[in-house]
Simulated assay, not measured.
Amino acid sequence: MRDAVMKFDEIVFARRSVIVSASVAVPFLVCAAVAAAGRAVPDASVAVGLVLVIVAAAATGLRSAGMGAAASAALWFDFFLTQPYDSFAIDSAEDIQVAVLLLLVGLGVTELALFGQKQRAQLGRERGYLDGVVTTAESVADDVPADTVVSSVADRVREVLRADRCTFVAGASLPGRPRIRRDGSLVRGEHLLPVDRSGLPVDQEVVLPVETEGQVVGWFAVTAAARVARPTAAERRVAVLLADQAAVALKRHRDPRISARP
């Protein structure tokens, strides 16, 4: 199911211009067809049909498609189906209400569709992160070599934090750089950094400690310099869980001198 959704999103992105153009054109064609047929279809039925077109456009997840369909529906409903016909003037207050409602409903449906798409994408990412934690835990349970586990964890931490690079460094003490604590917060010294607003520091590496039995055996040096990365608190906690898996592997193999690079 998730693969099918991703495939749909890829198709929508690749054909963005075509979808937007169709979303704007279809309301025009519907209204023009009704007008050409002698306007025998009640305005209320046409309005419902235009709403369905707007919903279909908004369902693509493209704001431009949904808003384009809404604006086109309101415009051409006014032009073809309100008196005086074939004019953008409107004499009836009821027709004005219908045109405005078409526009407002279209905008509202578009925003709801986009919100749902964002929620779906977030759930997909969280599921992927949890799958990564489980896979790493299985690697530890299967007695996979520590360097392999640590390298895999470095890759996953980089993905979760949307960083450019993640490198494991062995050592018993942490450098004085911004550090991710166990609760997912990011601190520089004792000062809390607003990751949600400012993102990860781009001028310094971020330290993700790796501890076993309360003792530091190393850390992941996370670099996010190419772009501003704003991992959520939940994503940062997932990174901490991944670091814990690396700690388990290092403890099991009694080899804290590993330096793995993704």
Rank of each mutant, 00 (worst) to 15 (best):
V207L: 11
L102Y: 01
F28C: 08
R257K: 12
I180P: 03
A163W: 10
V206H: 10
A221L: 08
I19L: 12
A170S: 14
L112E: 09
V157P: 02
A70E: 00
C166M: 05
S259D: 10
G61M: 09
A99I: 09
V30A: 08
D203G: 09
T148H: 07
Q97A: 15
R162F: 10
A57L: 04
A221D: 07
F220G: 03
P256Q: 11
A226V: 07
E111Q: 08
V149T: 00
V5R: 14
L192I: 13
G199D: 02
G49H: 02
G128K: 01
Q117M: 15
S185N: 06
R158Q: 08
V26K: 13
L123R: 12
V240G: 12
D183V: 01
V160A: 14
G171Q: 10
A37F: 11
V169I: 12
L208V: 11
H253A: 09
G214P: 00
S259E: 13
G38F: 08
V169S: 07
T232H: 03
V222A: 11
S17A: 13
T135N: 09
A40L: 15
L114E: 12
P231Y: 08
T148C: 06
Q204T: 11
V133P: 02
I90S: 04
R237A: 10
G49A: 06
A225T: 09
R236S: 12
E205P: 11
V30L: 12
D255F: 08
I54A: 01
I258T: 06
Q97M: 13
A71G: 03
R177K: 15
H191P: 11
V18Y: 07
R156A: 07
T110Q: 01
A172I: 14
D255Q: 11
A226F: 07
R156F: 05
V133T: 03
L161Q: 08
A58N: 05
S23K: 04
A89W: 09
V149E: 01
V157R: 03
D155I: 05
F88G: 06
T60N: 04
R230A: 07
I11D: 10
L75D: 01
L130R: 04
V202T: 14
I258W: 04
R16M: 05
V207D: 07
S17K: 10
V217T: 00
Q215P: 00
V98H: 05
A40I: 13
A47Y: 00
L123W: 08
V34N: 05
V51R: 02
T148R: 09
W76A: 02
F77D: 00
L250R: 10
V46A: 00
K251D: 15
S152Y: 02
G108Q: 06
A137R: 06
V153C: 02
A22S: 06
L104F: 15
V216F: 00
C166G: 05
